[in-house]
Simulated assay, not measured.
Amino acid sequence: MKTLISKKAPNFTSSAVLNGKDIVQNFTLEQFFGRKYILLFFYPKDFTFVCPTEIYAFQEKIKDFDIRNVQIIAVSTDTEQSHWAWLQIPKEKGGIYGVTYPIVSDSNKTISYNYGVLSGDWICNQNEGLKATGELIAYRGLFLIDKEGIIRHILINDFPLGRNVHEAIRMIDSIQHYEISGEVCPANWNKGKKSMKASNSGIIDYFSS
């Protein structure tokens, strides 16, 4: 599969839960194009153990994303009813009550497939017809999308490996710094540190603040 980096983010229209309580049927990604940066992340399943740690970690930093004009959107292959039920359960009982950003249902698997994070596969068996090999759920994919709808950063983890929210914020800062200054961000760069200016040939000329 070809990488989606620097490509237009695949749009989708699906059901979602907003503000932890409201189910909507026609939630789209493109409603944010031209207005906001987007952090789109996929997780495997509702009612599991690692997933809520990530979901809450993004919620805990939501003000940091807000001041950077970033819309967080979560996706899994569960139904919107499953999302809603999980959102009603307190954290201490294994739920994700208090999460306010949209959680999208990808029950038909097409969003995960289009973003290249769907585990398992389909095979056509002569005797049984179409058959799934492995569980068709999403890996832990994360996509940073700029205001023009272009994917600028991709991270895909296997199921046991949780993501680092601070690193997602660092990458957003890098994208926005480059857009404003035209300067590139070296390894381990953080907001406020020195960046680098590239010549037209792509060779780094000098450090700058």
Score class of each variant (00 low, 15 high):
residue 23 I to D: 00
residue 83 H to R: 03
residue 109 K to E: 11
residue 106 D to E: 14
residue 183 E to F: 09
residue 36 K to Q: 12
residue 87 L to M: 11
residue 153 H to R: 10
residue 29 L to I: 11
residue 149 G to H: 10
residue 32 F to C: 01
residue 121 D to V: 07
residue 152 R to C: 08
residue 192 G to E: 02
residue 52 P to T: 14
residue 44 P to C: 06
residue 91 K to Y: 11
residue 62 I to R: 00
residue 90 P to W: 15
residue 192 G to N: 05
residue 26 N to Q: 12
residue 84 W to V: 07
residue 25 Q to Y: 02
residue 118 L to G: 01
residue 99 V to K: 05
residue 193 K to P: 00
residue 80 E to I: 07
residue 170 R to F: 08
residue 70 V to A: 06
residue 57 A to G: 05
residue 96 I to S: 02
residue 209 S to C: 04
residue 208 S to N: 07
residue 179 E to T: 05
residue 34 G to V: 08
residue 13 T to K: 15
residue 38 I to K: 11
residue 10 P to Y: 14
residue 180 I to N: 04
residue 89 I to H: 08
residue 153 H to A: 15
residue 206 Y to W: 03
residue 14 S to R: 11
residue 191 K to A: 10
residue 110 T to Y: 14
residue 111 I to Q: 07
residue 7 K to R: 13
residue 115 Y to K: 12
residue 101 Y to M: 13
residue 123 I to Y: 10
residue 170 R to L: 06
residue 206 Y to V: 02
residue 34 G to F: 06
residue 184 V to K: 11
residue 192 G to L: 06
residue 201 S to N: 07
residue 46 D to M: 04
residue 162 G to S: 09
residue 8 K to S: 11
residue 86 W to C: 10
residue 85 A to Q: 02
residue 207 F to I: 11
residue 93 K to T: 04
residue 127 N to Y: 12
residue 175 I to G: 00
residue 103 I to S: 03
residue 6 S to E: 14
residue 158 D to G: 05
residue 5 I to F: 08
residue 18 L to M: 12
residue 144 L to V: 13
residue 118 L to P: 00
residue 177 H to T: 14
residue 160 P to A: 06
residue 18 L to C: 04
residue 135 E to K: 08
residue 153 H to L: 13
residue 17 V to T: 01
residue 52 P to W: 09
residue 75 V to T: 01
residue 92 E to T: 09
residue 189 W to Q: 08
residue 28 T to R: 12
residue 165 V to H: 09
residue 37 Y to W: 04
residue 131 K to T: 15
residue 111 I to Y: 05
residue 134 G to F: 12
residue 50 V to M: 01
residue 183 E to H: 12
residue 81 Q to R: 03
residue 46 D to H: 03
residue 79 T to G: 05
residue 91 K to P: 05
residue 170 R to V: 03
residue 183 E to D: 09
residue 14 S to F: 08
residue 203 I to V: 03
residue 77 T to G: 03
residue 191 K to F: 14
residue 173 D to S: 15
residue 33 F to E: 09
residue 113 Y to G: 02
residue 47 F to M: 07
residue 89 I to Y: 08
residue 27 F to K: 00
residue 150 I to P: 10
residue 84 W to I: 14
residue 58 F to M: 04
residue 50 V to Q: 00
residue 178 Y to A: 10
residue 149 G to P: 02
residue 35 R to T: 10
residue 74 A to C: 06
residue 63 K to F: 13
residue 167 E to Y: 09
residue 165 V to W: 15
residue 34 G to C: 10
residue 144 L to N: 03
residue 79 T to I: 15
residue 83 H to L: 15
residue 24 V to M: 07
residue 40 L to K: 08
residue 16 A to T: 00
residue 32 F to K: 02
residue 193 K to A: 07
residue 134 G to T: 09
residue 133 T to S: 10
residue 148 E to P: 02
residue 184 V to L: 05
residue 73 I to L: 04
residue 99 V to I: 09
residue 135 E to R: 11
residue 138 A to M: 09
residue 94 G to M: 15
residue 117 V to M: 10
residue 48 T to H: 02
residue 87 L to R: 02
residue 97 Y to D: 12
residue 47 F to H: 00
residue 35 R to N: 12
